[in-house]
Design a protein around this nucleic acid. Structure first.
Lengths: 226, 226
DNA sequence: ATTTATATTGACAACAATGTCAGTATATCT
DNA sequence: AGATATACTGACATTGTTGTCAATATAAAT
């Protein structure tokens, strides 16, 4: 990323007619180009925030000219929408497969860690946050379904677990609240986490301990009093 | 805030020389002007996100011309810095006075509600979030101290409470984690809260119930096992 | 090899936003 | 009242960013 792709320097060798053209243009498939562009945009967004999302910069990152981006996404807004759609999809997939994995009910720590990783460690939460901050929330009605699906899956797991233990079925709202708290905390951590941790003198390992602590809190509540 | 101050409409009464000038320019004190500008900027930011922070818009809201803003804040960046500084200060004050109020140890619900109100209901968390997303974190080294102060105050309360109950003093890190979780959750709620709540079919009252639920969770932990 | 479709580019247009400046009006001080 | 400091304005300069367009190169099809 230090040295940008140069135009062919070996061009003025022969002043003959053979030397006057050496275009060497890269041509990707549309799908591949879109993927590269989205990747670059995501990275910029994660690193520099909303104001770092400029077509020219992204183009430079990919090594293309900025009209190419317009060609693939119509407009800047189109690019943003594509970004949103992909982030939502990734999030949904990650969460649901995590919920689907077997070892949930016994140990919430892994589970919490999954959620935090999916949202916080990778830039997804920051991306989604920015989307929400800029008021583009309504466009991604997917978010609704995602939350619904997750809570449903979680509730199913919980009832299953309760039955196994011979306990009464847990309250649906209680499950919802657990999910909401987790989501809120993960988003919050994605944004203020590093800042808070630094302020409190917590290192990377301390953050891990925090997540474990949180997992335990939820775990206790999971098969606790209620 | 609905009707902006209008320029004098009663001006074309006499076509005489007396009617040709009616400047009626408002002149505030520098302090007052700065306050108004910051208020307007804050509101824009809360409503429309980062991209809504344009000098011309803010100026229109206040009823002045945009160079006036530059006059008071040097540059756009200056305005942003002032915004940050004020938000930090407000946050610190709110939190510490909330911590200082007597009824903390017995009922965490009020307390949690205070925190959420200070961060979430008003636009503070969104503002700070945007600041963090845009990477302006380093400029507000105040944040460090804030977190430190709060945790210290909380820990003091907790030790006091533990002694009253004749229990062993709580772990400092445990207190820190409680504060971190609360902060994360409040920030998260400020950003994704409405979206999640809608997706889950929760109304305003449901959000209140969630906060109460969270408060209870912390409360139980407060004088619980550890 | 020729044709076809389209990914890609450079140059330019259009616009928006910050910032500059010289001048104007208003509160305050003497 | 007159003088002074400065909050404020309108017009302009500047810069940066999105978007348009005609032209070009390249992969795939015939």
């Amino acid at each position: 990323m230090s040295s940008v792709a140069k135009s062919p320097a070996a061009k003025a060798a022969l002043p003959e007619k053979t030397a006057e053209k050496a275009p060497k243009r890269v041509r990707r498939t549309a799908e591949e180009a879109r993927r590269l562009i989205l990747d670059a945009a995501e990275e910029r967004l994660a690193k520099q925030g909303p104001e770092g999302l400029r077509l020219q910069d992204i183009a430079r990152d990919v090594g293309i000219s900025h009209p190419a981006i317009l060609h693939h996404f119509e407009s800047r807004e189109g690019l943003v929408r594509a970004l949103i759609a992909r982030a939502n999809k990734q999030l949904r997939d990650t969460m649901l497969t995590a919920l689907g994995g077997g070892h949930v009910s016994t140990d919430a720590a892994d589970h919490i860690d999954h959620v935090f990783r999916a949202l916080s460690d990778r830039g997804t939460a920051r991306l989604l946050s920015w989307l929400l901050l800029t008021g583009r929330a309504s466009e991604s009605s997917d978010a609704h379904n995602i939350m619904g699906e997750i809570v449903a899956a979680l509730q199913a797991r919980r009832e299953e677990y309760a039955e196994m233990k011979g306990k009464p079925a847990p309250d649906k709202e209680d499950t919802l609240f657990m999910a909401m708290l987790t989501a809120n905390a993960a988003f919050g951590e994605a944004i203020v986490g590093r800042q808070l941790a630094e302020g409190a003198g917590l290192d990377q390992d301390g953050i891990k301990r925090f997540r474990a602590w949180f997992a335990k809190l939820l775990n206790d509540h999971w098969d606790g009093d209620r």
